[in-house]
Amino acid sequence: MSMPYYDLDVRPILREGGEPFSVIMQAVSSLAPGQSLRLYATFKPLPLFQVLGARGFEASAREIGNGEWEVIFTPGEAAADPVVKPTAPAAASDDKWPAPVDELDNRDLDPPEPMVKTLEGVEALQPGQTIAALLPREPVFLLEELEARGHSWRGQMEPEGHYRVVIRAGNPRR
């Protein structure tokens, strides 16, 4: 790969307790075709592997000491050439959610406020839009409610011990 890396260091954001997801996604969208992203983080960003993997990036990670990580996301063929049509359009479109319109940090709210705030954010979405939320723990009641309302979600525990969920608004039922 002759093209220089696009370097992004999110360690300062993480050390201040911030959420670098939107910065990373901005960087990804401003990559030149075929360009790789070199990311520095204070932990191995496993959730990102999945998110960017769905966009056709391959990740190679190495620890650089002090528990910090350097990860290089290299675009695969589909990502390198956006003109090439994916071979399985249904599955691919299923995997591609638009970037979240907002990232809610509901980690420090008294229960059940995290659920209330997240649902308020979801209800403000247009169908198909997504929103991300950080929650203090696995939001089992929230997920039940989202399903009852016909929204889809993807989420997982993050290494820092909180739960991150991305919710895509379904068609309104009521």
Binding site: M115, V116, L119, E120, G121, V122, E145, A148
Partner: peptide
Amino acid sequence: GPVMGRKPT
């Protein structure tokens, strides 16, 4: 639960 986020509770 059913009206959460839609109406003040």
